[in-house]
Nucleic acid binder design. Structure first.
Lengths: 107, 107
DNA sequence: CATATTTATCGCATATATGCGATAAATCAA
DNA sequence: TTGATTTATCGCATATATGCGATAAATATG
């Protein structure tokens, strides 16, 4: 029998976008990566690997997730990959989150 | 070979707690449920089922997730289950989120 | 040119999430 | 008491997430 595994799409746009950002923050490694990037402004993958208790391949995957949802940007720098926070999208996330929490607080 | 699938625990407490809340918000259905609960103040499961494009059992599961992480509370009312937002924990989530975003914005 | 460094990706294993129908348990109404 | 209503949970299927080692590709260094 055919089942629908993507009911997500039937929801409100803001709810969907906020859910995507929330998913990106739903692992402590990714929150920590964002904190590290904020602290150092810009980082190569290896620097993050050095700090996290995770294998290089796993860290690379988490970086990929953050990049996919737009919270960070990556730039190739020789054999290295240089990452930084995507401020514009980060602000969008904050906006959506504030809109959401404000709408609940206000009642 | 034995592998560790719970590296999560090796991270900072605030990052872990924020990640848990973020995971709760990582599905648009759960965001929508929280919006509905804010609007009506209190709701029984069936009222939420009526509004969402999901089966009763699925909605019940989402409610269970929200309850598990503490964002809502449930109270049995006859054959019904009455849910409302757990303001205290919701504020904790906002606090952790603000602390996180503030620490990144501030650089 | 040969070798080292760096990182993304593949392949694999396991765990968790999403979704539904069926059903049991609890309660309410007749 | 019988039947209807309501909801949590079980069982199932599929999808996605988490984690690692190995490796290929790109570049830097000798």
């Amino acid at each position: 029998m055919i089942m629908a595994y993507k009911k997500c799409n039937e929801f409100n746009d803001n709810a969907k976008r906020l859910a995507e950002y929330a998913r990106a923050l739903s692992h402590p490694a990714r929150i920590t990566i964002l904190n590290i990037l904020a602290e150092r402004n810009t980082c190569i993958c290896g620097q993050i690997v050095d700090v996290l208790p995770l294998a290089q391949s796993t860290v690379s995957q988490h970086l990929g997730e953050l990049k996919k949802c737009g919270l960070i940007m990556g730039e190739i720098d020789g054999p290295r990959s240089c990452y930084c926070i995507n401020r514009k999208n980060f602000e969008e996330m904050i906006y959506l989150m504030n809109e959401f929490t404000g709408g609940i607080r206000g009642r």
